[in-house]
Write a protein that binds this DNA or RNA. Structure first.
Length: 555
RNA sequence: GCCAACGUAGCUCAGCGGUUAGAGCGGGCGCUUCAUAAGCGCUAGGUCACUGGUUCGAGUCCAGUCGUUGGCACCA
């Protein structure tokens, strides 16, 4: 019976290009999971979108003299192109600036308000009498109480990195006009997280054995300290409005609003399908498993506040798993736009193919600890693993078979023990890789597939069909038939990771149509099936590119 | 400062109570030539961060120390 799988993926801020760390951490893993489940014939709904709101976008817009909407639209377009070229197969990739999203947010806001899970309170905040508005912490500047740096912001000091409060600053002033802010009362809405401490603890304490250790322990640890209520509105003009009169100059803030995107995107998808109620199958059927893919900095929102919101709203599925990844770093540190310490995806894809990147990121995926991206390792894995072990296996076998057996799958004689053993191994590996992917152990999955490719190379060495062809053509045919069977199985196992090249391989083996249609099944290609003339699946990379690419970093 | 995860061969990582600690890559030696000089075999490399403890027995459990990263923000 087909399973239902909902996959929600962190909403990237539309304030800059995507870098490899984001792909390795949050975007490639769900695509692998989605492709696997679709191949199995399960129903998958994978959604995300560009976060159009939030401080980073406003800041960039200010710097560039554009509106936040312009900045967000620009990067949203770039993201769409990136997904296309990387092969990230969304069922819907939308944005947080749709009417549908605002409606869904308002619906949740109002219901939680009605239930008392959202309440009004007043905060003391810096107010600029010249601009006549409240200032975000970061718009108040002054002297850092820790290091004495004079350009410190009210949220953090850029010089010493300490987290600050605007009232800590010496000689505080408005960033825009230099006036001294007053402290005034401002009304805001708060989410009553304190009411959910116990329920969240119960939820996280049962049936979470498949969760990653750091995700679960971190979340339980926060609950042990006790959650605090948090404000969900800000004095801003850019964002989702508050659905009540008198709050025209305030907005619902991103941390509350963007997670709701998972639900609103499902509704938008359903509407576009012409089946407006179809979202319910993924949100209200308890049998549907919902996954949320995020980076480790985002765990709090997905294991605590978002589930609390869902519990409060009621009748919606809670996350089945939140397989947060650690970071993929560059030169040992988190990607940094300001220092240009990041490998930008559009730039990367302008020179290299998507599958080698997907391979490398899968093999080094930061599942249990941070992993470091280096160009040397990328070239090495491409040349020594992807090209040499898998690509070359395919190439040597297909070209040999194509050349010596009239461009068709050879007709085998009786299989011997070694043939059967290898084919059985291939069949088992398909189940094994599927199981690993299903558990979100992506690195283990691709490793298991690669191990079978190595066994196939060993088998070939033992059989040496290039010798057999001169002595006993039928034996050579049998060996080739066997390895082609293994390759056909690995084609499926590798497909979620390497979709572009596996599709090509699918065609070389003589199949038409999308590879996904052939299912997650072990099938031997019929003897005599006409093959297409095989080409190399991957390109070897010159070692010289390491130096060139390294030179681009940190400039 | 508090909380969490991580720290195992040159590199990337697996092993999470039980024989002499594993894999891939890289290094060295050999074989092979169908293949993108790819493949196969053999081999050399480790006081499992450190210090204590529990146990008949510990990378594997516990405590502490050190290091890395994340959270404790009006950054999400």
């Amino acid at each position: 019976m087909a399973e239902k799988i909902f996959i929600g993926v962190a909403w990237p801020y539309a304030n800059g290009s995507l870098h490899l760390g984001q792909i390795a951490g949050a975007y490639l893993p769900p695509d692998i999971l989605a492709r696997y489940h679709r191949a199995r014939g399960n129903r998958v709904l994978m959604v995300s979108g560009s976060d159009q709101h939030g401080t980073p976008i406003t800041v960039r817009a200010e710097q560039e003299g554009r509106t936040p909407a312009e900045v967000a639209a620009h990067f949203h377009q770039e993201f769409l192109e990136t997904w296309e070229r990387l092969g990230i197969t969304w069922d819907l990739y939308t944005t947080t600036s749709t009417d549908n999203h605002a409606r869904t947010t308002h619906d949740i806001f109002l219901r939680l308000l009605e239930k008392g899970d959202i309440y009004k309170d007043s905060m003391k905040l810096p107010y600029c009498t010249v601009e006549k508005r409240f200032l975000l912490d970061r718009y108040v500047e002054g002297t850092c109480p820790v290091c004495g740096y004079d350009g410190a912001r009210g949220d953090q000091c850029d010089n010493c990195g300490n987290v600050l409060d605007p009232t800590d600053l010496g000689n505080p002033r408005c960033k825009f006009d230099g006036s001294t802010p007053e402290v005034r009362d401002s009304e805001h809405f708060f989410l009553r997280l304190t009411a959910y401490n116990t329920r969240l603890k119960e939820w996280l304490s049962t049936g979470k054995e498949h969760w990653r250790k750091n995700v679960l322990n971190f979340s339980l640890g926060v609950l042990e300290q006790g959650l605090k209520d948090r404000s969900i509105t800000r004095d801003l003009e850019w964002g989702v409005s508050i659905p009540l009169p008198g709050y025209e100059h305030k907005r619902i803030y991103v941390w509350f609003e963007n997670v709701i995107g998972y639900l609103s995107a499902a509704k938008e998808w359903a509407q576009r399908q012409g089946t407006p109620e179809a979202w319910r199958e993924f949100w209200q059927d308890p049998a549907c498993k919902s996954y949320f893919f995020i980076g480790k900095d985002n765990i709090w929102f997905h294991t605590l506040s978002w589930p609390a919101m869902l519990m409060g709203y009621g009748d919606l599925n809670l996350p089945y798993d939140v397989p947060a990844n650690q970071y993929q770093t560059v030169r040992g540190s988190k990607a940094s736009t300001s220092r240009n310490l990041a490998v930008w995806v559009p730039d990367f894809l302008s020179r290299y193919d998507p599958d080698p990147l997907r391979y490398h990121l899968s093999a080094t995926m930061p599942e249990t600890s941070d992993s470091d991206f280096t160009w040397a390792d990328f070239v090495r894995r491409n040349n020594d693993e992807l090209v040499a072990t898998w690509g070359n296996l395919v190439h040597r076998v297909l070209t040999f078979a194509y050349r010596h057996f009239d461009g068709a799958v050879p007709h085998p004689a009786d299989l011997d023990d070694a043939d059967r053993r290898l084919l059985q191994r291939a069949e088992e590996s398909l189940a094994q890789v599927g199981q690993e992917i299903g558990l979100c152990h992506f690195r283990a999955g691709i490793g298991a597939a690669m191990a079978v490719a190595q066994e196939a190379n060993r088998y070939l060495e033992a059989k040496s069909p290039w010798k057999l062809i001169r002595e006993d053509r039928r034996k050579a045919a049998t060996a080739l038939y066997t390895v082609i069977g293994v390759i056909n199985a690995l084609k499926v196992a590798f497909y979620p990771y390497l979709p572009f090249t596996c599709q090509r391989l699918h065609n070389y083996l003589g199949y038409d149509g999308p590879i996904e249609d052939s299912g997650w099944r072990f099938v031997l290609p019929p003897p005599g099936q006409a093959m297409a003339e095989p080409q190399a699946l991957f390109k070897k990379l010159e070692p010289e590119i390491v130096e060139k690419e390294e030179a681009r970093l940190g400039q």
